[in-house]
Design a protein around this nucleic acid. Structure first.
Lengths: 89, 89
DNA sequence: CTCATTAATCGTAGAATGACGATAAAGAAT
DNA sequence: ATTCTTTATCGTCATTCTACGATTAATGAG
């Protein structure tokens, strides 16, 4: 369960279609690099990187550097708390 | 279940602490008029009216005019679809 | 070492958001 | 009819968001 401000923050991060699609993709394939998401979305690399930054700042996504690339995956813990809070609204 | 764009739109509407508080209050007392929400939040009447408009545009809230005042309540249907979609992310 | 690949950051421009006070509209009350 | 109450809308300003291209940083390959 999350307090109202934190919940609002996560909602805000999810409040963009591109970021929803990123989340859905990460859920589908577990983990992937930024470039893969760039392929999927009709957005520039820098824009995708920004969206990933927003999701990371909200805690929904974790990124670990693997050489020259960064591998992203969902933070199941945070996602779970979000779901539980959403269910209790 | 909602498509990605609709879900993102609702998340966006929920992406502000004041609007979360409005939703929570409406859930707690079922229905109330705008002025009551103005009492609760540290915001000007016009600002609260704007927030209500955002929630209404997202479909989360319904408002019916009752004489000079407007009575707001949650749209349980939409809220349910939101919760189900959130749970499936 | 040099070059290629990958992702983050910078700078920027335009659109949207959030806040307010002032005003308008609609009805109730006197 | 006039006044009061309530809410929506308007106009405005500062801030944030979204998108892009260009640049930088980091690493791997040759």
């Amino acid at each position: 369960m999350l307090d109202a401000a934190t919940f609002a923050g996560i909602c805000k991060a999810l409040g963009h279609p591109a970021r929803i699609r990123i989340i859905e993709h990460l859920r589908a394939i577990d983990r992937c690099i930024c470039g893969e998401i760039v392929q999927i979305l009709p957005l520039a690399q820098s824009t995708v990187s920004q969206h990933l930054k927003v999701l990371k700042a909200a805690g929904l996504v974790k990124g670990e550097v693997e050489g020259p690339r960064t591998c992203y995956c969902l933070d199941g813990e945070v996602l779970d708390r979000f779901k539980k809070t959403a269910a209790s609204i």
